[in-house]
Design a binder for these strands. Structure first.
Lengths: 239, 239
DNA sequence: CCAAAAGTGTTATTTATACACCCATGT
DNA sequence: ACATGGGTGTATAAATAACACTTTTGG
């Protein structure tokens, strides 16, 4: 197969291509931190102090540190870990995280070209407020999830993607593990599902599915009872 | 809530943070182009001509063009479209594409820090070789998919991600539409499923599911018959 | 005793799986 | 006529969904 003249020219171009000579985008990591508080889905948000979008909510995030020369800088997950640590005081292996994808619209940030890699993180309710009582190095707040939230930049898009993703995943994975306290009653777990799915879950049918989780050894009975306003409920834990 | 001294110092740091002053990574778009040829899944690959990894296969890809000043450069999807056009001669709206995610290990490219946003693209068999007969500006080849393929960089990881993804998706989406010719027989479609799923699909059960597709108006009968070595098969198309 | 929420059971419906069998065609 | 692959039917099991019911507690 003979190379066309165009092809040869292109080869030469590619060989001489020095990416260092070209403009490069800033790359950030943004994180959709989710938890359940007061039977409502909450997102961790930061209120912007300067323009653009002053006073609007944004997802916590930061630039990926890229080294120079021999220093290669940090991985995306390390950047995520930093961000999580800064905003929640939690280590990345205390929460469930998953990448949502890259958001790269040229005008998503009016100031400059930023490509953002978004993650979502699920924080167990009993870990929220545990390490950092809302103050200290963190300047983020747990805000009840709502479609009305007018986020800055394209962060509404990212939030939407997170919402869609957990809805897809909760039925098929361990994901619920990070949405209930370390010990929980069946109704509490059912409530978490209901919140994520956006509709009430039938008590009887949910129990049957829960039974499957038990016989598969995914959850087990824990000591104690959960005191409610009526009949106390048995308590379980993920193994 | 009073700010700690650390907090104040950090604030000052953040205010003075000029991302322009920091190192930025190169950002590339890599694409896992898939099609079915001769009843086998094929991937579009390029053989590397220079070190590192000289002679090894890589996924087609290229840097995202980032503008300067007012020029914001191209979106990720535009970069993907360019790549697709260059390697297959096909327009991006002739193929099914979906983002797989960002791959950002600091050492994934030994030469420099490159963060890659990966996509997969499904190319209808009847479009392959249609526009570009394998030559011209394209220097990529369709290679039978195999776990033995020793790809350069972290491209094996990306390929794996694509494989996993289409397996997840084919049952739930229109995805098969891009894996069979514009008109197809049920056995042909069944074959596509079998290839993606990695195991033969029961003829009877597949037909029942296909029936559902028909009554939902997703596929319809097309004129003509598909000539086989035995009984001719009815031909359908996606609406 | 009553309200409220935990926990149990029943039944109907749909969907998945396995597999046996008939039918049309080229050789 | 017969082998091949298209096309059909059926019987069983398993997952889903709707909903009625019983039990245990606090007030």
């Amino acid at each position: 197969m003979r190379k066309s003249p165009t092809r040869v020219a292109e080869d030469a171009f590619l060989r001489s291509y020095k990416p260092e000579a070209f403009e490069r985008p800033s790359v950030a990591v943004d994180v959709v931190c989710l938890t359940i508080k007061d039977s409502l889905l909450h997102v961790l948000l930061v209120k912007r102090g300067e323009p653009p979008f002053r006073g609007r909510w944004v997802l916590p995030g930061g630039f990926v540190r890229v080294g120079k020369g021999a220093d290669r800088g940090e991985s995306l997950e390390q950047a995520l870990g930093r961000e999580l640590e800064e905003e929640t005081g939690l280590s990345i292996d205390e929460v469930y995280t998953e990448q949502l994808g890259a958001f790269g619209d040229p005008n998503r940030d009016p100031r400059m070209r930023v490509i953002s890699v978004a993650y979502y993180a699920l924080v167990r309710p009993d870990l929220v407020n545990h390490v950092r009582g809302g103050g200290d190095a963190s300047h983020a707040e747990w805000v009840p999830f709502s479609a009305e939230l007018r986020l800055a930049f394209d962060h509404a898009l990212i939030l939407e993607a997170a919402r869609t993703r957990i809805k897809e995943r909760i039925g098929a994975t361990d994901l619920a593990k990070s949405l209930v306290p370390s010990t929980f009653s069946i109704p509490e777990l059912r409530n978490a599902y209901a919140i994520v799915m956006g509709e009430p879950q039938d008590a009887g049918n949910f129990r049957r599915r829960f039974g499957a989780l038990m016989s598969e050894g995914i959850v087990e009975l824990a000591p104690g009872k959960r005191i409610t306003t009526s009949k106390p409920a048995a308590v379980y834990r993920f193994v």
